[in-house]
Design a protein around this nucleic acid. Structure first.
Length: 882
RNA sequence: GGUCGCAUAGCUCAGUUGGUUAGAGUGCCUGCCUCACAUGCAGGAGGUCCCUGGUUCGAGCCCAGGUGCGACCACCA
């Protein structure tokens, strides 16, 4: 048969097979094909993105599912694409412009957007090319982009519908504002630093307007006092009761501001009095509304104090903070400064400290949308895996807040709302209007764009052609599974569920598998700034895609974070090589005409080892299938690993050698057929995990291949008729016996070349021993196996194999007596210790009385056996000592 | 402040419904280039299953409390 190189070289195979798969169009989902479907949409990576380890895990899992279901006969759609990533992409192009000494304003909006598109065409979407290296079996013909024509159409349709339904509105609110990106952010985009950041709590005295002592407030952002329009105290706080309704003097600004009573104020915090700055704090804004306090904006969008800030105008917010504190101190109004952990929010894109800022923005009213999304999780229509994420989802959904969707950017879907200056009419439109529908005047479009997630939340159906009623939607929507990381449950998963119900009336997916977060060896999250994320493409170059895939799947348990070190890939690489060599071995022995016997050999002609491995094969098929059905990817991988390495390679290949090298043609034929079947099935089982290697080997097997590629070959089903308990028991005994003999040999330091003789007291029947005799000789390097009758050697058996009998290893004068004594003493000590434990257990009446009979009986039998063994060992030792 | 997760061999982690002697990979020690594979083969050492208490005949597993680490949420100025 074919000659294969000694070491598996992924480089020469991966590209070749990937091209072959694409050429054969095997990843294409066909709307016109009947039968069950399975669909999954990729979490669209940012178009600016570069593959990192998180993507590797996420996409490998998706590919495992896609390939498994494809082989299992489903019509599979794995929808690929990228996200336009508003801020991220705009940042990239702005940086590029900066190198040329330009800002986006130099170009103007239209030209800038043009420039971004140009960047996207030239440099964007690298990550999709990288996914192909990984082996991702996406339907690439369908690649989507959140700003392509169809998706933009969907976005606009959704906006207009929700606008008309009153679910989208514009309002003055305190939002999170990034002074660097110069845009509003959603709550989820303003991230809190863990445990707060180092700051101070400044205690500032506000004298009473009538010159009295006034009160002291505590603040972490003293510069905002420039915009204070009130002071609030708790209504029940007796310390300040006399000041409620009065005024105090705002230091530095010399304005009188009222003292109001509001239950929001916690009397136990700070001084129990709080400055109210409605334009720069969400709580203060609410209090301002309740008490009719003016909102005074003191800051430019860039974070620079504006004219309202008096002498501080023109200073950056942090400079202003220092100046304000210094001036207060100089005036003796700073009572104290204490170090304090301040909760700070930062822009999720550029990490600039975000400013709570009063501005006019667009919002989605979320509460009505949350109703069906809550129901879905409660009634089981939607499953999160692992389930414990339900709590996170529910908590967010139940406390949902309106979603700020407008962004002051240029790159994105422009808000389809027009204003007519002539008649003050505001309207949303599906197509760009040239005139105001009310007065015929010239309307102008809102300058803002929509949050990137406003297109992402439509992804499962917009990618399939919604709002048109397409064949794709009818066939493949809703999808079955979504695989994503838990950190975007709010950003994406929850919102997709809401959009799905609102716009299509259905939950967009059944199962959401939340994959592990990949951390580095020290448990840190992998990130670009830490430089601790190995470039997966380098890993693939070095170890191969299959090795990386298998490693990552193996170490990622359900719902647990995973630590990844580059070295770990050796695990997968070694496994790939092991499989490769097993195939080499097989192909040395297989003949082209074995194809005729390629499938399921007839049991009658099979040897014990053949029947055993075919039975074990059924067990691993069962295990792999049930693990995959439950999204226990690592269990499936480890079942395959244990079977292939621990059973096929360690035992079956060795057990098959006597037949393969022997003269018995029937046995040889049976072994070849078995080998072929096992490899064929194993490669198919393995294909979702190691697509390239499995294809490479499968293609050279001498079998009648039902399909041109393993990608669409049937995933193995359990064949119950191949289960063989008898063979499993017998080979189990064989393995025990061989293990025991090897152990003795190694411990007594007997060279591999030294012949041993083994005597077996065949309590289990002489026939049992004879069936495995030849195997023992080969595997344990034994010269002779003797069958004992009633006559047994006087000494202790070397081991007892359940169901077989006592095994005596005769050492024939090659033994060092001291070594034997040492071994026996060790065994004796072990037996004594164990017996002590069992006796203690049996002496307790509660155990004997209450435990199930079989458990007690087992313990009793054990005690008896141990006692016998102890006696024998002791006797044997006495002889040896004498 | 709230919610959730984790703690098992030197390291990284499995351990499904409570039941013989708690496993794997890797590292370490010993012996092997044995005709598929040294990216390998055979054998071995190594564990107070975080602590305390409880339930049970029996707990790595269930319950309570504690300690340590981590994640998420929150309107403590």
């Amino acid at each position: 048969m074919a000659e294969l190189p000694k070491t598996y070289d992924p480089k020469t195979t991966e590209q070749r097979w990937y091209d072959f798969w694409l050429a054969g169009n095997y990843f294409h989902a066909d709307e016109t094909r009947d039968g069950p479907t399975y669909s999954i949409v990729i979490p669209p990576p940012n178009v600016t993105g570069v593959l990192h380890m998180g993507h590797i895990l996420n996409n490998t899992l998706q590919d495992v599912l896609a390939r498994f279901h494809r082989m299992d006969g489903k019509n599979v759609l794995w929808m690929p694409g990228t996200d336009h990533a508003g801020i991220a992409t705009q940042n990239v192009v702005e940086k590029q412009l900066a190198k040329e000494g330009l800002s986006r304003h130099d170009l103007g909006r239209e030209q800038f957007v043009e420039r971004v598109w140009q960047w996207k065409e030239e440099k964007g979407g690298v990550i999709l090319k990288q996914l192909k290296r990984l082996g991702a079996s996406c339907d690439w013909e369908r690649e989507r982009f959140t700003m392509d024509e169809g998706l933009s159409h969907a976005v606009r349709e959704v906006f207009v519908r929700l606008y008309e339904k009153g679910l989208i509105y514009r309002g003055q609110r305190i939002i999170h504002w990034c002074p660097r990106c110069l845009t509003a952010l959603a709550d989820e985009e303003a991230v809190t630093t863990e445990g707060g950041e180092n700051g101070s709590l400044w205690h500032i005295r506000y004298p009473a307007a009538d010159g009295g002592p006034g009160l002291t407030v505590a603040t972490t952002r003293p510069e905002t006092m420039l915009g204070d329009t009130g002071i609030a105290v708790n209504p029940d706080d007796e310390r300040y009761a006399h000041l409620i309704g009065k005024s105090v003097m705002l230091p530095l600004m010399q304005r009188q501001i009222p003292v109001v009573a509001d239950a929001l104020v916690d009397p136990s915090f700070g001084t129990g009095a709080v400055k109210v700055t409605p334009a720069h704090d969400a709580n203060d804004f609410e209090m301002g509304q309740r008490h009719g306090l003016e909102s005074m904006c003191i800051m430019e969008p860039s974070g620079v104090i504006n004219a309202a800030g008096g002498i501080y105008a023109g200073l950056d917010r942090f400079e202003a903070r220092q100046r304000v504190v210094a001036d207060l101190e100089a005036q003796g109004l700073l009572d104290k400064t204490e170090p304090y952990r301040v909760p700070v929010r930062r822009c999720y894109r550029c990490e600039t400290v975000v400013e709570p800022y009063l501005s006019l923005q667009w919002f989605v009213k979320m509460q009505p949308l949350a109703v069906p999304a809550l129901k879905a999780i409660n009634d089981g229509t939607l499953r999160l895996i692992p389930e414990r994420w339900n709590g996170v989802y529910l908590h967010w959904m139940e406390n949902i807040r309106d979603w700020c969707i407008s962004r002051q950017l240029w790159w994105g879907h422009r808000i389809p709302v027009w204003y007519c200056d002539a008649c003050s009419h505001e309207f949303a439109a599906r197509t760009d209007p040239s005139t105001c529908p009310q007065c015929g005047g010239a309307p102008r479009q809102d300058p803002d764009v929509l949050d990137t997630w406003f297109s992402s939340w439509l992804w499962p159906f917009s990618t399939m052609g919604w709002p048109q009623d397409t064949a794709t939607l009818r066939r493949f929507y809703p999808t079955q599974t979504l695989v994503t990381a838990a950190d975007i449950i709010f950003f994406w998963v929850a919102r997709m569920v809401m959009a799905g119900y609102e716009l299509t009336g259905e939950c967009p997916f059944q199962d959401v598998y939340l994959n592990s977060i990949v951390r580095d060896g020290q448990g840190r999250k992998m990130s670009k700034s830490l430089g601790n994320s190995p470039d997966p493409i380098d890993v693939i170059d070095q170890y191969g895609a299959d090795a990386l895939r298998f490693t990552v799947v193996s170490i990622a348990p359900v719902g647990q974070d995973v630590r990844f070190d580059l070295d770990k890939t050796e695990f997968g690489r070694n496994f790939a090589n092991k499989i490769w060599n097993a195939a080499r071995f097989a192909l040395m022995h297989l003949q082209a005409d074995d194809a005729a016997h390629g499938d399921t050999p007839a049991p009658a002609v099979l040897g014990l080892a053949d029947r055993w491995i075919l039975s074990r094969l059924q067990a691993v098929i069962e295990e792999t299938r049930s693990a995959l059905a439950a999204y226990r990817f690592n269990d499936a991988a480890s079942a395959l690993y244990r079977f292939i390495w621990g059973e096929v390679c360690d035992w079956y290949l060795e057990l098959s050698k006597p037949a393969l090298y022997g003269a018995d043609e029937a046995a040889k034929q049976a072994a070849r057929a078995t080998l072929t079947t096992v490899l064929d099935h194993t490669m198919r089982l393995l294909h979702p995990f190691m697509p390239f290697l499995s294809e490479e080997i499968w293609q050279v097997l001498p079998i009648a291949r039902p399909t041109a590629t393993i990608c669409i070959a049937p995933y193995p089903h359990v064949d119950a008729t191949q289960r063989d308990a008898d063979a499993e028991a017998r080979v189990g005994q064989l393995i025990d016996t061989v293990g025991a003999i090897r152990n003795i040999r190694a411990e007594l330091g007997i060279a591999p070349t030294t012949g041993l003789a083994v005597s077996i007291a065949a309590d289990g029947g002489a026939e049992r021993v004879r069936a495995i005799e030849d195997f023992i000789k080969v595997l344990a390097k034994v010269q002779a196996v003797e069958l004992l009758g009633a006559e047994r050697p006087s000494g202790e058996p070397s081991t007892v194999v359940p169901g077989l009998g006592e095994v005596f290893v005769s050492l024939r004068g090659v033994v060092d007596p001291a070594a034997v004594r040492e071994r026996l003493e060790k065994d004796l000590a072990k037996a004594e210790k164990e017996l002590k434990g069992v006796d203690a257990k049996l002496s307790r009446s509660d155990f004997v009385d209450k435990a199930p009979v079989d458990v007690v009986d087992k313990e009793r039998a054990k005690a008896t056996a141990l006692r016998e063994r102890q006696a024998k060992l002791g006797k044997h030792l006495d002889v040896l000592r004498a």
